[in-house]
Protein backbone atom coordinates (compact mmCIF):
# COMPACT_ATOMS: atom_id res chain seq x y z
CA UNK A 1 0.00 0.00 0.00
CA UNK A 2 1.23 3.40 -0.89
CA UNK A 3 0.70 6.00 1.76
CA UNK A 4 -0.13 9.32 0.28
CA UNK A 5 0.24 12.48 2.29
CA UNK A 6 -0.53 15.11 -0.23
CA UNK A 7 -0.59 18.83 0.36
CA UNK A 8 -4.24 18.78 -0.47
CA UNK A 9 -5.12 16.38 2.32
CA UNK A 10 -3.00 18.34 4.77
CA UNK A 11 -4.76 21.55 3.75
CA UNK A 12 -8.16 19.92 4.12
CA UNK A 13 -7.55 18.66 7.63
CA UNK A 14 -6.00 21.91 8.85
CA UNK A 15 -8.97 23.77 7.36
CA UNK A 16 -11.43 21.32 8.92
CA UNK A 17 -9.94 21.60 12.38
CA UNK A 18 -9.92 25.40 12.11
CA UNK A 19 -13.59 25.22 11.21
CA UNK A 20 -14.32 23.23 14.37
CA UNK A 21 -12.32 25.77 16.38
CA UNK A 22 -14.42 28.55 14.84
CA UNK A 23 -17.60 26.74 15.87
CA UNK A 24 -16.57 25.83 19.40
CA UNK A 25 -14.39 28.67 20.69
CA UNK A 26 -17.31 31.11 21.18
CA UNK A 27 -19.31 28.47 23.05
CA UNK A 28 -16.32 27.57 25.17
CA UNK A 29 -15.68 31.22 26.02
CA UNK A 30 -19.19 31.66 27.42
CA UNK A 31 -18.78 28.64 29.64
CA UNK A 32 -15.33 29.58 30.94
CA UNK A 33 -16.14 33.21 31.60
CA UNK A 34 -19.40 32.40 33.38
CA UNK A 35 -17.12 31.47 36.30
CA UNK A 36 -15.24 34.77 36.15
CA UNK A 37 -15.67 36.91 39.25
CA UNK A 38 -14.91 40.22 37.51
CA UNK A 39 -18.20 42.17 37.68
CA UNK A 40 -17.06 45.08 35.52
CA UNK A 41 -15.21 43.56 32.62
CA UNK A 42 -16.47 40.09 31.90
CA UNK A 43 -13.60 39.24 29.60
CA UNK A 44 -10.74 39.94 32.01
CA UNK A 45 -10.18 37.00 34.30
CA UNK A 46 -10.19 37.93 37.97
CA UNK A 47 -10.90 34.74 39.80
CA UNK A 48 -13.17 31.75 39.99
CA UNK A 49 -16.69 32.23 41.32
CA UNK A 50 -20.10 30.58 41.40
CA UNK A 51 -21.73 33.94 42.17
CA UNK A 52 -23.47 34.36 38.82
CA UNK A 53 -24.99 30.91 39.13
CA UNK A 54 -26.00 31.65 42.70
CA UNK A 55 -27.68 34.82 41.43
CA UNK A 56 -29.77 33.16 38.76
CA UNK A 57 -30.78 30.33 41.05
CA UNK A 58 -31.73 32.78 43.78
CA UNK A 59 -29.06 31.98 46.35
CA UNK A 60 -27.64 34.82 48.41
CA UNK A 61 -24.36 36.25 47.09
CA UNK A 62 -21.91 38.80 48.33
CA UNK A 63 -22.35 40.90 45.23
CA UNK A 64 -23.77 44.32 45.88
CA UNK A 65 -26.98 45.46 44.28
CA UNK A 66 -25.28 47.70 41.75
CA UNK A 67 -23.58 44.90 39.88
CA UNK A 68 -26.80 42.94 39.62
CA UNK A 69 -29.80 43.25 37.44
CA UNK A 70 -32.66 45.27 38.76
CA UNK A 71 -34.96 42.59 37.42
CA UNK A 72 -35.78 39.88 39.86
CA UNK A 73 -35.20 36.26 39.05
CA UNK A 74 -39.00 35.86 39.07
CA UNK A 75 -39.12 37.16 35.51
CA UNK A 76 -36.48 34.67 34.48
CA UNK A 77 -38.29 31.75 36.09
CA UNK A 78 -41.55 32.88 34.62
CA UNK A 79 -39.96 32.97 31.16
CA UNK A 80 -38.54 29.46 31.62
CA UNK A 81 -41.91 28.18 32.76
CA UNK A 82 -43.64 29.85 29.79
CA UNK A 83 -41.13 28.33 27.38
CA UNK A 84 -41.65 24.85 28.79
CA UNK A 85 -45.43 25.17 28.77
CA UNK A 86 -45.47 26.38 25.18
CA UNK A 87 -42.97 23.76 24.02
CA UNK A 88 -44.80 20.84 25.65
CA UNK A 89 -48.26 21.74 24.34
CA UNK A 90 -46.91 22.70 20.92
CA UNK A 91 -44.98 19.45 20.64
CA UNK A 92 -48.07 17.38 21.45
CA UNK A 93 -50.37 19.23 19.04
CA UNK A 94 -47.96 19.58 16.13
CA UNK A 95 -46.87 15.94 16.42
CA UNK A 96 -50.48 14.80 16.02
CA UNK A 97 -51.20 17.23 13.17
CA UNK A 98 -47.97 16.59 11.27
CA UNK A 99 -48.16 12.81 11.64
CA UNK A 100 -51.80 12.75 10.43
CA UNK A 101 -50.94 14.57 7.22
CA UNK A 102 -47.84 12.43 6.70
CA UNK A 103 -49.90 9.23 7.03
CA UNK A 104 -52.64 10.54 4.76
CA UNK A 105 -50.19 11.60 2.07
CA UNK A 106 -48.18 8.38 2.21
CA UNK A 107 -50.93 5.80 2.59
CA UNK A 108 -53.95 7.10 0.70
CA UNK A 109 -54.72 8.11 -2.81
CA UNK A 110 -56.55 11.39 -3.20
CA UNK A 111 -56.70 14.32 -5.51
CA UNK A 112 -55.28 17.08 -3.33
CA UNK A 113 -52.14 15.20 -2.38
CA UNK A 114 -49.73 17.61 -4.06
CA UNK A 115 -51.58 20.54 -2.56
CA UNK A 116 -51.01 19.10 0.91
CA UNK A 117 -47.33 18.46 0.19
CA UNK A 118 -46.89 22.08 -0.90
CA UNK A 119 -48.91 23.33 2.06
CA UNK A 120 -46.71 21.46 4.51
CA UNK A 121 -43.54 22.75 2.90
CA UNK A 122 -44.65 26.37 2.87
CA UNK A 123 -44.03 27.26 6.53
CA UNK A 124 -40.51 25.84 6.26
CA UNK A 125 -39.49 28.06 3.40
CA UNK A 126 -41.20 31.15 4.76
CA UNK A 127 -38.88 33.64 6.49
CA UNK A 128 -39.72 33.70 10.21
CA UNK A 129 -40.40 37.41 10.21
CA UNK A 130 -43.16 37.03 7.61
CA UNK A 131 -44.99 34.38 9.60
CA UNK A 132 -44.47 36.50 12.73
CA UNK A 133 -46.07 39.65 11.31
CA UNK A 134 -48.82 37.73 9.51
CA UNK A 135 -49.82 36.03 12.77
CA UNK A 136 -49.60 39.32 14.67
CA UNK A 137 -51.93 41.05 12.20
CA UNK A 138 -54.30 38.08 12.28
CA UNK A 139 -54.47 37.77 16.07
CA UNK A 140 -54.91 41.47 16.62
CA UNK A 141 -57.54 41.97 13.88
CA UNK A 142 -59.64 39.09 15.18
CA UNK A 143 -59.30 40.08 18.82
CA UNK A 144 -57.38 37.05 20.07
CA UNK A 145 -55.40 39.09 22.61
CA UNK A 146 -51.71 38.20 22.75
CA UNK A 147 -50.54 35.67 25.31
CA UNK A 148 -49.35 32.11 25.73
CA UNK A 149 -52.25 30.81 23.64
CA UNK A 150 -51.19 32.86 20.61
CA UNK A 151 -47.60 31.67 20.97
CA UNK A 152 -48.80 28.06 21.09
CA UNK A 153 -50.98 28.48 18.00
CA UNK A 154 -48.18 30.26 16.15
CA UNK A 155 -45.62 27.57 16.94
CA UNK A 156 -48.01 24.78 15.88
CA UNK A 157 -48.45 26.29 12.40
CA UNK A 158 -44.83 25.84 11.43
CA UNK A 159 -43.80 22.96 13.71
CA UNK A 160 -46.48 20.68 12.17
CA UNK A 161 -44.43 21.02 8.97
CA UNK A 162 -41.23 19.90 10.65
CA UNK A 163 -43.00 16.86 12.13
CA UNK A 164 -44.58 16.14 8.73
CA UNK A 165 -41.21 16.12 7.00
CA UNK A 166 -39.46 13.92 9.58
CA UNK A 167 -42.34 11.41 9.72
CA UNK A 168 -42.73 11.35 5.92
CA UNK A 169 -39.05 10.53 5.56
CA UNK A 170 -39.52 7.63 7.96
CA UNK A 171 -42.62 6.30 6.16
CA UNK A 172 -40.91 6.41 2.79
CA UNK A 173 -38.16 4.13 4.14
CA UNK A 174 -40.82 1.77 5.41
CA UNK A 175 -41.96 -1.47 3.89
CA UNK A 176 -45.71 -1.25 3.31
CA UNK A 177 -46.05 -5.00 2.70
CA UNK A 178 -46.15 -5.48 6.48
CA UNK A 179 -49.37 -3.51 6.66
CA UNK A 180 -50.79 -5.47 3.76
CA UNK A 181 -49.83 -8.71 5.49
CA UNK A 182 -51.58 -7.57 8.63
CA UNK A 183 -54.74 -6.78 6.68
CA UNK A 184 -54.53 -10.09 4.81
CA UNK A 185 -54.28 -11.93 8.11
CA UNK A 186 -57.60 -10.41 9.07
CA UNK A 187 -56.66 -7.47 11.28
CA UNK A 188 -59.01 -4.54 10.95
CA UNK A 189 -57.79 -1.05 10.11
CA UNK A 190 -57.42 0.15 13.69
CA UNK A 191 -55.60 -2.99 14.84
CA UNK A 192 -53.23 -2.74 11.90
CA UNK A 193 -52.55 0.87 12.72
CA UNK A 194 -51.98 0.23 16.42
CA UNK A 195 -49.97 -2.98 16.12
CA UNK A 196 -48.06 -2.50 12.87
CA UNK A 197 -48.01 1.04 11.52
CA UNK A 198 -47.51 2.92 14.75
CA UNK A 199 -44.55 0.87 16.05
CA UNK A 200 -42.93 1.17 12.62
CA UNK A 201 -43.24 4.94 12.36
CA UNK A 202 -42.58 5.52 16.08
CA UNK A 203 -38.92 6.50 15.66
CA UNK A 204 -39.92 9.11 13.07
CA UNK A 205 -42.70 10.43 15.28
CA UNK A 206 -40.40 10.65 18.30
CA UNK A 207 -37.71 12.33 16.21
CA UNK A 208 -40.21 14.83 14.85
CA UNK A 209 -41.53 15.55 18.33
CA UNK A 210 -38.03 16.15 19.69
CA UNK A 211 -37.23 18.48 16.82
CA UNK A 212 -40.48 20.36 17.43
CA UNK A 213 -39.67 20.67 21.13
CA UNK A 214 -36.18 22.02 20.49
CA UNK A 215 -37.30 24.52 17.85
CA UNK A 216 -40.22 25.68 20.00
CA UNK A 217 -37.93 26.24 22.99
CA UNK A 218 -35.52 28.20 20.81
CA UNK A 219 -37.87 30.21 18.61
CA UNK A 220 -37.26 33.91 18.97
CA UNK A 221 -38.49 35.77 15.90
CA UNK A 222 -42.06 34.51 15.64
CA UNK A 223 -42.55 34.50 19.42
CA UNK A 224 -41.19 38.04 19.61
CA UNK A 225 -44.09 39.32 17.52
CA UNK A 226 -46.93 37.30 19.02
CA UNK A 227 -46.06 37.19 22.72
CA UNK A 228 -47.93 39.55 24.99
CA UNK A 229 -46.35 41.72 27.64
CA UNK A 230 -46.66 39.14 30.41
CA UNK A 231 -45.96 36.08 28.33
CA UNK A 232 -42.33 36.28 27.30
CA UNK A 233 -40.46 33.06 26.66
CA UNK A 234 -36.85 32.44 27.60
CA UNK A 235 -35.26 33.48 24.27
CA UNK A 236 -37.38 36.65 24.13
CA UNK A 237 -36.47 37.42 27.75
CA UNK A 238 -32.74 37.02 27.05
CA UNK A 239 -33.03 39.11 23.90
CA UNK A 240 -34.55 41.87 26.01
CA UNK A 241 -31.78 41.54 28.60
CA UNK A 242 -29.12 41.77 25.90
CA UNK A 243 -30.67 44.89 24.44
CA UNK A 244 -30.63 46.60 27.84
CA UNK A 245 -27.00 45.78 28.52
CA UNK A 246 -24.56 42.94 28.90
CA UNK A 247 -24.26 41.64 32.44
CA UNK A 248 -22.33 38.65 33.75
CA UNK A 249 -25.48 36.77 34.84
CA UNK A 250 -26.33 36.25 31.18
CA UNK A 251 -23.17 34.14 30.90
CA UNK A 252 -24.44 31.84 33.59
CA UNK A 253 -27.92 31.61 32.06
CA UNK A 254 -26.39 30.90 28.65
CA UNK A 255 -24.19 28.15 30.10
CA UNK A 256 -27.16 26.47 31.78
CA UNK A 257 -28.99 26.59 28.43
CA UNK A 258 -25.94 25.13 26.70
CA UNK A 259 -25.86 22.18 29.08
CA UNK A 260 -29.57 21.65 28.53
CA UNK A 261 -29.12 21.66 24.72
CA UNK A 262 -26.20 19.24 24.91
CA UNK A 263 -28.26 16.80 26.98
CA UNK A 264 -31.20 16.90 24.55
CA UNK A 265 -28.95 16.56 21.51
CA UNK A 266 -27.05 13.64 23.04
CA UNK A 267 -30.25 11.82 24.00
CA UNK A 268 -31.61 12.34 20.49
CA UNK A 269 -28.48 11.11 18.79
CA UNK A 270 -28.15 8.18 21.17
CA UNK A 271 -31.68 7.11 20.30
CA UNK A 272 -30.93 7.44 16.63
CA UNK A 273 -27.80 5.32 16.89
CA UNK A 274 -29.71 2.64 18.84
CA UNK A 275 -32.36 2.55 16.13
CA UNK A 276 -29.71 1.58 13.61
Amino acid sequence: MRRKISWRNLFLSVYGWLFLVFIYVPILLITVFSFNSNPVNMMIWQGFTFDWYRTIFGFPTELNELTLYVESTDQLYNAVLNSLTVALITTAVSTVLGTSVALAVARFRFRLKNFYRALMFMPMIMPDIILGIALLIFFVSFGFGLGLHTIIIGHCTFLSSYVFIVVSARISDMDDSLEEASADLGADGWTTFKRVTLPLIAPGVIGGAMLAFIISMDDLVITYFISGVDSTTLPVHIYGMLRRGIKPEINAIATVMLVFSFIIASVGLYMRSRKK
Partner: peptide
Amino acid sequence: FISLIVRLFAW
Protein backbone atom coordinates in the same frame (compact mmCIF):
# COMPACT_ATOMS: atom_id res chain seq x y z
CA PHE B 1 -29.40 22.34 18.99
CA ILE B 2 -27.91 25.31 20.83
CA SER B 3 -30.12 28.32 21.26
CA LEU B 4 -29.58 30.98 18.60
CA ILE B 5 -29.60 33.77 21.16
CA VAL B 6 -26.86 32.04 23.17
CA ARG B 7 -24.67 31.67 20.10
CA LEU B 8 -25.16 35.33 19.19
CA PHE B 9 -24.44 36.41 22.75
CA ALA B 10 -21.06 34.69 22.45
CA TRP B 11 -20.17 36.98 19.56
